[in-house]
Design a protein around this nucleic acid. Structure first.
Lengths: 120, 120
DNA sequence: CTCATAGTTCGACGACTCTCGAACCTCGAT
DNA sequence: ATCGAGGTTCGAGAGTCGTCGAACTATGAG
């Protein structure tokens, strides 16, 4: 099948999110281990929900798409379409259910490090 | 220079460990994001200190060396020589000082996931 | 309809990761 | 002095990652 082309369906562009039970620690950590993605996570932690473009990412649109996809497939964020935009949100509750305290520790660590770095 | 050969120094084989202030969150996460290394961390969390060989790693010796080095350079473990063996230890205190709660959350998450997986 | 906006997909590329075996080094024991 | 056990180093290979630009696909506004 040569790229689902100019045709029927495309109901509203469905996006696959892993079930909480399918979220793997290694993947979550890998998703968070990239500076760009870590900044996305911090931005979402601060703003609750944001479109891809609203976060000031210093990269091309395709690279941004890539990073958001990694985060979604790892189970770290949800994405849904809202008109022409795509809204991203942290899966706080799900992550906390599966790995209690991990997200908070991560966010706190990121903040701590940012503080350390800034006061150089 | 053809591999520092049969000669002087080599005081006691020094190993570089990053200062606490130089420990980077991204590197810690990357170090923990590998299944093999995650198992090393869990083993060290349980046993306090262990030689490289004492952990039942399903890989060659050179691969083991590689993973231990990644962990050390990220600041997750310390390594010191003790006779012919090399003893590894988690840097609990240092990590907790720099990223409070992170290591605990990580270990708890790893345990939780192991439990989930086992009761399949 | 046409357009602009927002994001996606596709190949490509260089860089990095993880793995290994072979050859080597170090220490402690014989 | 030699040996064995425990690790290290050095390529090398297969694979993944992060990046990009170009061409594309929605969606909503005029």
């Amino acid at each position: 099948m040569p790229l689902r082309s100019t045709s029927a369906a495309t109901p509203s562009r469905q996006l696959d999110h892993p079930e909480p039970a399918d979220i793997r620690l290694e993947e979550v950590l890998h998703a968070c281990a990239d500076p760009m993605r870590l900044r996305i996570i911090q931005a979402l932690a601060a703003d609750a929900a944001a479109a891809c473009g609203e976060i000031g990412l210093a990269c091309s649109k395709s690279t941004a798409t890539y990073h958001f996809r990694v985060l979604r497939e790892a189970g770290v964020i949800t994405q849904r379409y809202q008109g022409t935009a795509k809204v991203n949100e942290l899966r706080r509750a799900d992550l906390d259910a599966v790995f209690p305290g991990l997200l908070d520790a991560l966010l706190a660590s990121a903040t701590a490090q940012a503080g350390r770095t800034r006061e150089a």
